[in-house]
């Protein structure tokens, strides 16, 4: 079993008519993902390579039964697009868009929690998720994935790929790989995903990739200590990042000792996770842990 998306996932792409939206939607469809609709106000009735376009998400959902939305619209309109998808009643919203103002993200997060608490928002500013062999809802390169029994969750896009790549090289396939995004207010956090992986009977091991800034990793460590019985391999990026510097992700800021890589690694280690200082050893470490079980 995969988590959040599988072979029954039907995707509506918001922003399908844009360059990036089209490139990735078609790639996902070629992979086998059921991409059933796209939206673009004013272009309803048209189509992109056989995918019907609707003016609104609710029309797309009514006509096609789409249950998942994939968002590529530019930052000024992205918060609105998320709210539209939630109002249309999809189960999972995946927001790829990078550069959404933090004020918008905070409003959207709290509004969703208040009005659509069962809707899962992945991102924004994330690579999306893939359940190998079943469905790819995002921009992850599926070539590096392989169906299997490891769950991957990461705050960083490209590091997710790195982790998945290392697993696949060792023959360790994945149930689902999720990039939750590095923005200050992610819709889904480590704990949400860890708890799904723990409950998923097919997931045998979990890889968790964090980075400096915030306290999401420390909180995940508390959750792991109490609730996770499956082996966890963890890696934190930013050990050598100078304090006080903002390295790209709005999320990756260190202030004081809180949020440093060392503090996060220590918390995860104390929670029983296998913490690595080299991401290229993720596959090897997981292989060893599974063999020991």
């Amino acid at each position: 079993m995969a988590i959040l998306i599988d072979e029954n996932t039907k995707v509506v792409v918001q922003g399908l008519t844009g360059k990036e939206g089209q490139f990735h939607a078609l790639r996902n469809r070629a992979y086998g993902t059921k991409v059933v609709a796209g939206t673009r106000p004013g272009k309803g009735g048209e189509q992109v390579e056989g995918i019907p376009i609707f003016d609104t998400v609710s029309q797309a959902v009514e006509a096609t039964g789409a249950n998942t939305s994939l968002i590529f619209v530019p930052p000024p309109f992205a918060a609105d697009a998320i709210l539209e998808a939630a109002a249309a009643g999809v189960d999972v919203i995946v927001a790829i868009t990078e550069g959404i103002p933090a004020q918008d993200e905070a409003k959207v997060f709290n509004y969703l929690k208040e009005t659509a608490p069962d809707t899962v928002l992945i991102g924004p500013n994330c690579p999306g998720l893939i359940s190998p062999g079943k469905s790819n809802v995002g921009i992850m390169p599926h070539e590096i994935t392989k169906p299997g029994n490891i769950g991957v969750v990461s705050r960083s896009g490209t590091l997710t790929y790195q982790a998945v790549h290392e697993l696949t090289l060792r023959g360790l396939g994945q149930t689902t790989c999720i990039g939750i995004g590095g923005d200050p207010v992610p819709g889904t956090n480590f704990i949400d995903v860890l708890s799904r992986f723990q409950d998923d009977p097919e997931t045998e091991g979990i890889v968790m990739i964090g980075e400096i800034g915030g306290d999401a990793e420390e909180r995940a460590a508390e959750f792991i200590a109490e609730h996770v019985t499956k082996p966890v391999v963890a890696y934190i990026a930013g050990v050598t990042a100078p304090p006080g510097k903002k390295m790209g992700h709005a999320g990756a800021i260190i202030s004081g000792s809180k949020g440093t890589a060392a503090a996060k690694m220590e918390a995860l280690r104390a929670a029983g996770a296998t913490v690595l200082d080299d991401p290229t050893q993720i596959g090897e470490a997981m292989e060893r842990l599974l063999a020991e079980r």
Binding site: E211, A237, G238, M247, D277, D278
Partner: peptide
């Protein structure tokens, strides 16, 4: 490409 990967590259 990507803050996480670049930070990780510095670390490696």
């Amino acid at each position: 490409n990507g803050a996480g990967l670049v930070m990780s590259t510095l670390d490696v």
